[in-house]
């Protein structure tokens, strides 16, 4: 059973998600490292992601696009800032233009992810930090919103008592 908790810090513009998975840290790490696995979860179900580049080393970059129900795409990028396999991953995640490259003037979000072994598997803590409200709004405007809105109904169903 997967236990998920979140903490929103409105003042510091930080979102923290803690999820406990029934798998070793190595296996949870794989869903980040292997681009074919990463694209199975990074985008919402109605906005699946395709990673065209995933250079999973410190300083390495990724490029991806997400495809919506009407075929529309939105593009993004990652830059890996720190890796300590399978314990810690720091990365920047920003918006990209149609050429796939970073959109000038839009700062990336910062992601800090840690993986801890527990008695039953792995506790993954993913912290997302935003710079300001305008950045948050821009990120939300990038197109994934439609998929997210549709997905909220699915999430509500998932959050019902039955375990994953």
């Amino acid at each position: 059973m997967t236990v998920i908790t979140t903490t929103k810090d409105v003042e510091n513009l930080t979102l923290t998600l803690v999820a406990e998975f029934d798998a070793t840290p190595d296996r949870v790490w794989e869903v980040w490292e292997d681009p074919r696995k990463l694209e199975q979860w990074w985008g919402p179900p109605t906005f699946p992601a395709t990673f065209t580049r995933h250079d999973f080393v410190v300083g390495g970059e990724s490029r991806y696009f997400m495809t919506g129900p009407a075929g529309e795409t939105s593009r993004g990028w990652w830059r890996i800032d720190a890796i300590d396999k399978p314990r810690r991953l720091d990365f920047a995640n920003g918006l990209a233009g149609d050429d796939g490259e970073a959109t000038p003037g839009v700062d990336p979000m910062a992601g800090y992810v840690t993986f801890e072994a527990t008695d039953t598997g792995t506790r993954m803590t993913a912290v997302t930090r935003f710079i300001d409200a305008a950045q948050m709004q821009t990120m939300l405007d990038m197109g994934m919103q439609e998929g997210m809105t549709q997905a909220i109904g699915q999430i509500d169903a998932l959050l019902a008592p039955a375990p994953v």
């Binding site: 979140t6 999820a19 029934d22 696995k37 979860w41 993913a126």
Partner: peptide
């Protein structure tokens, strides 16, 4: 939350 659910499914 959705991402974490999807990771759980993959695992």
């Amino acid at each position: 939350i959705q991402r974490a659910k999807q990771i759980a499914n993959i695992i």
